[in-house]
C-alpha cells in the first residue's frame, strides 16, 4: 500500500547517499553470540558478510555487515540493520517480505519499511534489484535459521 506521504526523489537520494557515505552498521561483529552469513553476487562485485545477534527473548539485539559493496547494496544493507534491531523474528520476516514485494512491484505494506522506502524505484534498474536485496536476503536466511556460526 502507498505511504501516507510520498518520498520525493531528493529524499530518496538523500537517504541512500547518507547510508552509503556514512554507513552506521558497516563493521565486523564484535563480541559473542552472533551468527553470520556470507553473500556475494555473480554478476556484480558485491561481496559481503552479514552478522546477526538475537537476545534471550528472541529479539534482534544487533545487526551489522561488512564487505565490498556498491551504493545500493551498501545503503540497503545498512538500512536493514537499522530496521532489524529490536524486532522479533516474525516482525523481521514480515519486514523483509514487504521489502521484497516492493522491489518486485507487488502490493506491499509500507508501514514497517521506513527508510527502506528509498528503494521503491530500484526495479527501474532491473539489473540492480539484486544489489538492493543482497543484504536483506542474507539476513532473511539467518533469521530463518540457516546459521553459520
Amino acid at each position: 500500500m502507498p505511504t501516507s506521504f510520498e518520498l520525493t526523489p531528493e529524499m530518496m537520494r538523500a537517504i541512500i547517499m547518507d547510508h552509503y557515505s556514512s554507513p552506521r552498521h558497516k563493521h565486523d561483529a564484535e563480541g559473542e553470540g552472533y551468527v553470520s552469513l556470507h553473500s556475494s553476487s555473480v554478476n556484480c562485485i558485491d561481496d559481503i558478510e552479514v552478522y546477526l545477534k538475537l537476545n534471550k527473548e528472541g529479539k534482534v539485539e544487533d545487526a551489522c555487515w561488512n564487505g565490498v559493496a556498491c551504493a545500493i547494496s551498501t545503503a540497503s544493507s545498512d538500512i536493514i540493520c537499522d530496521l532489524l534491531v529490536g524486532k522479533t523474528e516474525d516482525e523481521a520476516k514480515y519486514l523483509i517480505e514487504q521489502y521484497n514485494h516492493m522491489l518486485h512491484e507487488e502490493p506491499y505494506d509500507a508501514e514497517p519499511l521506513e527508510e527502506a522506502l528509498a528503494f521503491k524505484n530500484t526495479s527501474r534498474q532491473a539489473a540492480r534489484i539484486h544489489c538492493a536485496t543482497i543484504g536483506w536476503d542474507a539476513f532473511n536466511e539467518l533469521i530463518k535459521g540457516h546459521k553459520h556460526e
Binding site: I45, D46, A69, A71
Partner: peptide, 22 residues
C-alpha cells in the same frame, strides 16, 4: 566517488551500455 557498478547503472539510465566489474 562513484562505484563502477553504480556508474554503469547510471549509464544504463541514459541508454548507454558499458560494462562494469572485473
Amino acid at each position: 566517488n562513484i562505484f563502477a557498478q553504480d556508474a554503469a547503472t547510471y549509464f544504463n539510465s541514459k541508454g548507454i551500455a558499458v560494462r562494469s566489474g572485473q
